[in-house]
């Protein structure tokens, strides 16, 4: 028995080496004790077909599809919120956000990261898939410095990169999408099929906007995004304690009833407790240069 196990182990090691050296594998046509190379190739193809069939049943959301979903989510939100048409403020917010995105693990999405300020006193922010991030003037008013703004943007970028928005799409939509793709296959999309695709698309977008605007992410997802935000802040050189400062300011404005961000976010002090160990003991002392340029960029004039 032991002799057989040793021979098997030796054969496995040899075969793995051969598998990684296709040129050498082409020199042999039979593997002793296993069978012909042709038989092995047929078995491999069978395994791949079974794996492919399972994959085809549920469509994967590619970066390109994520982009179109994200655009639609942002456009749906912008049907309800007015943008703040303040070029200097939007340019500044984009610079902060794009710096953070560049030092993240996913510096490029299909269409890139884009930030827009909403002209709303509500304290809120929305991270649409693909990197379309909207933050309200009400939320910016809670920030006293660039570091706190960076904390907000880092948190929203993290939601995008952790695919929390896409995760809100019901599995049945992805199964429907997979079936439509396979049925369509090589043909151009006819009108009936396009209608069906658009219906699935609309429902998927609806799943995400409902999460962003009504039910909110889970506590675990908010903690995950907060912890990832702390990493981004550190990588860029912002003070991680800015996140704690920001959450404490939000707590001061946390309404007693579930409206605005209170509807979609857990109590800020719960978030502070969950992220305190990641932030560390250092206090928050925003550098004057970043406080000043923050105030300059977001002034009304």
């Amino acid at each position: 028995m032991r002799g057989l196990a040793l021979k098997t182990a030796a054969a496995l090691a040899g075969l793995l080496l051969l598998a990684a050296w296709p040129a050498a594998a082409g020199l042999i046509d039979t593997i002793p004790g296993v069978g012909s190379v042709g038989e092995i190739r047929r078995r491999v193809q069978q395994v791949q077909r079974v794996a492919g069939a399972a994959q085809r049943a549920t469509a994967e959301i590619t970066p390109r599809q994520e982009y179109y979903i994200g655009r639609a989510v942002a456009a749906t939100i912008l049907k309800q919120y007015r943008p703040w048409d303040h070029p200097a403020a939007n340019a500044y917010v984009n610079k902060v956000g794009q710096c953070l995105a560049l030092v993240s693990d996913v510096p490029q999405t299909f269409g890139g990261y884009h930030f827009l300020v909403l002209d709303s006193p509500e304290i809120n922010a929305f991270a649409a898939p693909g990197g379309f991030i909207l933050v309200s003037r009400g939320l910016l008013a809670c920030c006293g410095s660039e570091d706190e703004l960076a904390a907000v943007l880092a948190h929203e970028i993290s939601h995008v990169q952790l695919k929390h928005g896409l995760g809100a799409i019901k599995k049945s939509r992805l199964v429907d999408l997979g079936r439509l793709l396979i049925r369509e296959g090589v043909r151009e999309v006819g009108s009936a099929r396009l209608n069906q695709l658009t219906r699935v698309f609309g429902r998927s977008v609806g799943d995400i906007t409902k999460t962003l605007m009504i039910s909110g992410y889970s506590r675990a997802q908010e903690t995950e995004a907060d912890r990832a935000a702390v990493k981004l802040l550190r990588r860029m050189g912002y003070q991680p304690a800015a996140l704690i400062s920001m959450l404490q300011k939000m707590k001061a404005r946390y309404p007693k009833t579930k409206v605005g961000f209170a509807k979609t976010h857990p109590d800020p002090l719960e978030r502070v407790r969950a992220v305190r160990s990641a932030v560390g003991a250092a206090g928050f002392h925003p550098p004057a240069v970043r406080v000043q340029r923050f105030q300059n960029a977001l002034s009304e004039g």
């Binding site: 492919g52 994959q55 085809r56 549920t58 469509a59 994967e60 959301i61 590619t62 390109r64 599809q65 179109y68 979903i69 655009r71 639609a72 456009a75 749906t76 912008l78 049907k79 999408l177 997979g178 439509l180 793709l181 396979i182 369509e184 296959g185 999309v189 396009l194 209608n195 695709l197 658009t198 698309f201 609309g202 998927s204 977008v205």
Partner: peptide, 27 residues
């Protein structure tokens, strides 16, 4: 596979966006 078709531009694409835009649900 479905994934390869999605990568090739089938599925959610500009055509679908154009149809969704026309629905008036988004700006």
């Amino acid at each position: 596979s479905g994934s390869e078709l999605a990568l090739a531009g089938k599925g959610f694409n500009q055509q679908v966006e154009n149809r969704y835009r026309a629905s008036g649900r988004a700006d």
